[in-house]
C-alpha cells in the first residue's frame, strides 16, 4: 500500500474536492449548479485526458472526442441490451462502465499503435481521420446506433449497491465520484515517473530515447490511458443525458476540447478544467444573444490564440517563473561582483 503513502497528499486533495462537490449537491436546491457541474465532469475529463497527450507528451491529437463518444455509445448500447441487463441485474451498470472503458482502451491502443510513430502534423491529421471514421460508422450503422438521431429511448439504469441513477442526486454524486477518481489517477500520473517520461518525450524525444526511455511504448500507453479516461467522460454524459449522440464524435468536439486546453493552460494541471468552465460560460452567454455562436466562438479563439498565444494559467505561471528566475540570476550576479 505504498502507493497510498506516496500519494497521500494528492488523495487528500481530491477527497476534499469530492466532499465539496457533494456538499454543493446536498445543500443547493436549484438544479443549475448540479447540471452545470455534471456536464463539466464530462467535458472536463475530455479536456484533462486530452491534455495528457498535448500538454504532457506533446502529442497534438485532433481526434480525441472519438474515445469520448465511444465510451458513451458502448455504455448506452450495453445497458439498452435487455439480455445484458437481464442476465447481470444489479451488476449491469458497473460492468457496463468497465466494459465500455476497456473496450475503448483496446480501440485507442490500436489507433495509438498506428499513429504514435508519426511526426506531429501527421499525428494530428491521422487522429482526426480516425475520428471521422468512427463518426461515419455511427451515422451509417443506423440499426445499431440510431444514426443521426442518436441512441434514443433512454438508457435503463438498474439499481446497484443502493444507488439509483435515475435519481438526480444519486446520479450527481456518482458522476462526481467517477470524475474525482479519474482526476486522482491523472494527478498520480502527473507526479509519477511515467509522467516525467512523457514530459521528456515532449521536450526532446531523441534525448529521451538515448537515456534509455522506450518512447514508442510509452506514447502508445499514454494514448490508451487518455482514450480510456475520455471514455469515462462520455459515460458521464450518457448518464446525464440518458442517451448518446453522433455530435459527440464530430470533429468540432475535438476542436472544442483543444481550445479548452489552450484557453485554460496546458502546462498547469488544472488548466484544462478552467478552460472547460470558461468555454461553457462563453457558450451559455453567447447563446443568450445570438444563434451564430460558431462565429463568435471562432473569433474568440482567434483573439486568444493570436493575442495571448498560450493559456491563461500558462501566462500566470510564466510571469511568476520569469520574475523568480530574474531575481535569482540578479542575486547570482551580485554575489559574483562581491567576490
Amino acid at each position: 500500500m505504498s502507493m497510498f503513502r506516496n500519494f497521500s497528499k494528492e488523495i487528500l486533495w481530491v477527497l476534499g474536492a469530492f466532499l465539496a462537490i457533494v456538499f454543493v449537491g446536498l445543500f443547493v436546491d436549484h438544479p443549475w449548479p448540479k447540471d452545470f457541474l455534471t456536464s463539466l465532469f464530462a467535458f472536463g475529463l475530455l479536456a484533462m485526458s486530452l491534455n495528457l497527450l498535448i500538454g504532457f507528451a506533446g502529442m497534438v491529437s485532433f481526434g480525441h472526442a472519438a474515445y469520448f463518444a465511444m465510451g458513451g455509445y458502448c455504455f448506452g448500447l450495453l445497458l439498452q441490451s435487455t439480455s445484458f441487463t437481464g442476465s447481470l441485474g444489479p451488476y449491469s451498470v458497473p460492468l457496463a462502465i468497465i466494459l465500455a472503458v476497456f473496450g475503448t482502451g483496446v480501440y485507442a491502443a490500436a489507433v495509438g499503435a498506428i499513429c504514435a510513430r508519426l511526426n506531429e502534423i501527421y499525428f494530428a491529421f491521422l487522429t482526426l481521420a480516425f475520428q471521422m471514421f468512427l463518426y461515419s460508422v455511427i451515422l451509417s450503422w443506423v440499426d445499431l446506433t440510431g444514426g443521426d438521431q442518436g441512441l434514443m429511448g433512454g438508457i435503463p439504469r438498474p439499481l446497484f449497491l443502493g444507488i439509483d441513477l435515475s435519481q438526480a442526486l444519486d446520479r450527481y454524486v456518482f458522476c462526481a465520484g467517477l470524475f474525482c477518481l479519474c482526476i486522482l489517477f491523472l494527478r498520480i500520473i502527473d507526479k509519477s515517473a511515467f509522467g516525467q517520461s512523457l514530459r521528456m518525450i515532449r521536450d526532446n524525444q531523441e534525448r529521451a530515447e538515448f537515456l534509455g526511455v522506450r518512447t514508442y511504448r510509452i506514447k502508445v500507453i499514454c494514448f490508451t490511458i487518455a482514450g480510456m479516461i475520455a471514455s469515462v467522460g462520455g459515460i458521464i454524459l450518457a448518464l446525464f443525458t440518458s442517451g448518446a449522440y453522433p455530435e459527440w464524435a464530430f470533429w468540432a468536439q475535438s476542436g472544442e476540447a483543444i481550445f479548452m486546453i489552450m484557453l485554460g493552460g496546458s502546462t498547469v494541471f488544472v488548466g484544462p478544467i478552467l478552460g472547460a468552465v470558461l468555454l461553457r460560460l462563453i457558450n451559455d452567454v453567447v447563446q443568450m444573444y445570438t444563434s451564430h455562436n460558431e462565429l463568435v466562438t471562432g473569433i474568440v479563439i482567434l483573439l486568444v490564440v493570436l493575442g495571448l498565444r498560450r493559456g491563461i494559467l500558462d501566462f500566470v505561471i510564466d510571469k511568476i517563473k520569469d520574475r523568480r528566475e530574474a531575481k535569482f540570476l540578479a542575486d547570482l550576479e551580485a554575489k559574483k561582483e562581491d567576490q
Binding site: M3, N6, I188, R214
Partner: peptide, 20 residues
C-alpha cells in the same frame, strides 16, 4: 538530471511510483 537518474533506475514506465 533527476529524469535521467530515474530513467536509469528503470522507472520510466512506472505509473504509480512518484518521480520525485
Amino acid at each position: 538530471l533527476m529524469s535521467s537518474v530515474s530513467a536509469h533506475e528503470m522507472k520510466s514506465e512506472k505509473l504509480f511510483q512518484p518521480f520525485d
